[in-house]
């Protein structure tokens, strides 16, 4: 999330000075938003973190758009901000990649954007899928490519003004991890067959140890997916919180004296810029890590038959 904070010196009375408005990259918007006073009072960080968290409102350059609340079968299926960004990411992917596919089919050697996409595809195939899963992993390539591009785009959308990274929400990463969990189990089941798949849970130990071994192994399958979920969420949220903290320093010091606030703002903004570039890198890195680990876990499940045969 590209967060640009501005210390609003115009409204320097005691209520407005406390509240820091999380604004976008234009002063115009900053001024427009600073007018409703008192509405967002309270802790500095809870105010700032609201913009990292999910909400029922969508921030746009033209004001806030209320999103519908939907309840289906007792589940809150509201279209929240992060759902909207899920869909934006999905729509951009569908349109962009369909365009690339059509363009690449016309020319023998892809150029420009088509070439870039192909670099990523070849990277996922040759550096992630084939080393981890062998040549048999190529049939899972569409799933892993979708995972990679979807996560990458969701991460990057957080760096766009007014954007939000849906992957900074633990529910979204949990959803992705649930899919990864089923894909890991499916890959293992398909490669080994039901018998070997179930036998794997015993860990190859004496049957008296099975009551201990089987729950551990079953738990083990969940921890992998759980780790995927938390890793992505924490990394994406972490960067945002670092930015919030760095920029928050301006307001903390600004509360003491506006002069110190301005003085602190210079290194703060420089550091924030640095963190933003780091975030750009992390966006790609985390998409890679999620895809690589999913592929690794799938590959482990697919190969464990070989391991067991060696052990016998």
């Amino acid at each position: 999330m590209a967060l640009f904070f501005l210390f609003d010196s115009q409204t320097s009375d005691h209520t407005a000075a406390d509240s820091a408005y999380v604004l976008t990259d234009s002063v115009r918007v900053a001024v427009a938003h600073s007018t409703p006073p008192g509405e967002e009072s309270g802790n500095l960080f809870t105010d700032l973190l609201k913009h990292v968290q999910d909400s029922h409102e969508l921030e746009t350059p033209f004001g806030h758009i209320a999103l519908p609340h939907i309840h289906l079968f007792g589940i809150d299926m509201s279209i929240t901000k992060h759902v909207v960004f899920l869909w934006i990411a999905a729509a951009v992917l569908i349109l962009g990649l369909a365009l690339v596919a059509r363009k690449n089919r016309k020319q023998i050697v892809p150029t420009g954007f088509g070439n870039l996409v192909e670099v990523f595809i070849v990277f996922v195939r040759d550096e992630i899928v084939i080393p981890n899963m062998g040549i048999g992993g190529v049939k899972y390539l569409p799933y892993l490519l979708t995972t990679f591009f979807f996560i990458l785009l969701m991460n990057l959308l957080g760096l766009v003004p007014y954007g939000a990274s849906a992957t900074g929400n633990v529910s979204v990463t949990a959803g992705l991890a649930v899919i990864a969990y089923f894909m890991i189990q499916f890959a293992a089941l398909r490669a080994q067959g039901i018998g070997h798949y179930l036998a794997h849970f015993t860990g190859g130990v004496h049957w008296l140890l099975w009551p201990i071994m089987i729950p551990i192994e079953i738990l083990g399958t969940f921890t992998k997916a759980f780790a995927l979920c938390i890793r992505l969420f924490a990394n994406m949220t972490g960067g945002h919180i670092v930015i919030v903290s760095l920029l928050g320093l301006i307001f903390v010091f600004g509360k003491i004296s506006p002069t110190i606030g301005y003085a602190v703002s210079v290194p703060s903004v420089i550091f924030t810029l640095g963190i933003n570039f780091l975030e750009l890198f992390v966006a790609v890195l985390q998409a890679y890590i999620f895809t690589m680990l999913t592929s690794l876990f799938m590959g482990l499940g697919m190969q464990s038959e070989v391991h067991e045969e060696r052990a016998h």
Binding site: D54, V83, N104, Y143, T146, F150, S171, L176, I179
Partner: peptide, 30 residues
């Protein structure tokens, strides 16, 4: 806090995305 609705939305979106992309993008590209 876990929001089950958002998990479901994520899964639904992902599955549809996977289906469409496999048809329109991955297959021809690969």
């Amino acid at each position: 806090d876990i929001n089950p609705g958002l998990i479901l939305w994520t899964i639904i979106t992902f599955v549809i995305l996977l289906f469409i992309l496999t048809k329109t993008a991955w297959k021809p590209l690969l």
